[in-house]
Amino acid sequence: MITANINDYKTALYLSEQMKDVISKALEITASNPADGRYNIDGDSAFVLISSPMTEAHEKRLAEIHHKYLDVQILLAGKEVIGYGTELAAAAAVQDLLADKDIAFYNAIPNEQFVSLNPGDYAVFYPHELHRPLCSAGQEQQIKKAVVKIKIDYLK
């Protein structure tokens, strides 16, 4: 997991040039304040999902993993807390949609930690990294976010 502010992504040594290019294209899309939906960057290899969900109490949110895609979750408006773990899932998934939708849901994250995001902050989750997005930062609220999905084998 990587977290930083989007203002610094171009100089981030830990992001490949290809990732920076995809993020740049995603930010061009978000600059026009688009409606919620999917916006292609490079077909199924790289795209951005814009959404305006409600955050919820940590206890109400399921954790998730992906196997084929990494997430660059960029908070555009509001406040969000994301749980994450540095260990692989120990228990079985409560819902496994990896084959069809590249997502599996879990109740728990071993030794869960939390990162708070403000507008302009982002978090990168690589395949197999458990994360619990959309947790409230105090009170539940509607946020706006962009989730950049990049197929892991697309990256060089």
Results as ranks from 00 to 15, higher is better:
Gly83Tyr: 01
Leu13Gln: 15
Ala137Lys: 09
Asp71Ser: 11
Phe114Met: 11
Pro34Trp: 09
Gln95Lys: 15
Tyr69Val: 00
Ile6Lys: 02
Ala108Phe: 02
Asn7Gln: 14
Lys68Asp: 05
Glu140Pro: 02
Lys144Leu: 02
Leu155Met: 13
Tyr106Asp: 01
Tyr126Phe: 12
Glu59Thr: 12
Glu64Gly: 06
Gly85Asn: 02
Met54Trp: 10
Ser16Met: 13
Ile103His: 02
Ala77Pro: 04
Ser45Asn: 15
Gly83Ala: 08
Glu112Gly: 12
Ala57Arg: 10
Thr11His: 14
Ser116Cys: 12
Ile65Tyr: 01
Ser52Asn: 12
Asp36Gly: 12
Val48Gln: 01
His67Gln: 15
Glu59Pro: 05
Val22Gly: 01
Ala63Thr: 02
Gly37Tyr: 09
Asp102Tyr: 03
Leu130Asn: 08
Pro127Gln: 09
Lys151Ser: 05
Gly120Glu: 03
His131Cys: 10
His66Gly: 03
Pro34Gln: 13
Asn33Thr: 07
Leu70Val: 12
Gln18Gly: 07
Ile143Gly: 00
Glu140Met: 09
Tyr14Phe: 14
Ala57Gly: 07
Ile6Tyr: 01
Ala108Met: 08
Gln113Thr: 06
Lys145Thr: 07
Glu129Gly: 00
Phe125Gly: 01
Gly138Asp: 10
Leu97Cys: 10
Leu76Asn: 07
Thr30Ala: 13
Tyr122Leu: 10
Ile143Thr: 09
Tyr9Asp: 11
Phe125Gln: 02
Asn118Thr: 15
Lys151Tyr: 01
Val94Ala: 05
Lys145Pro: 03
Ile2Leu: 15
Ala99Lys: 15
Ala89Ile: 05
Leu49Val: 15
Ser136His: 04
Lys149Asp: 00
Tyr84Glu: 04
Tyr39Trp: 09
Leu13His: 14
Glu17Pro: 04
Val81Gly: 04
Leu98Phe: 01
Arg61Asn: 07
Ile6Glu: 01
Met1Trp: 08
Met54Leu: 14
Tyr9Arg: 11
Ile23Ala: 06
Asp121Leu: 06
Val115Trp: 00
Thr55His: 02
Lys156Cys: 03
Ala35Lys: 14
Phe114Glu: 12
Tyr154His: 11
Leu155Gly: 10
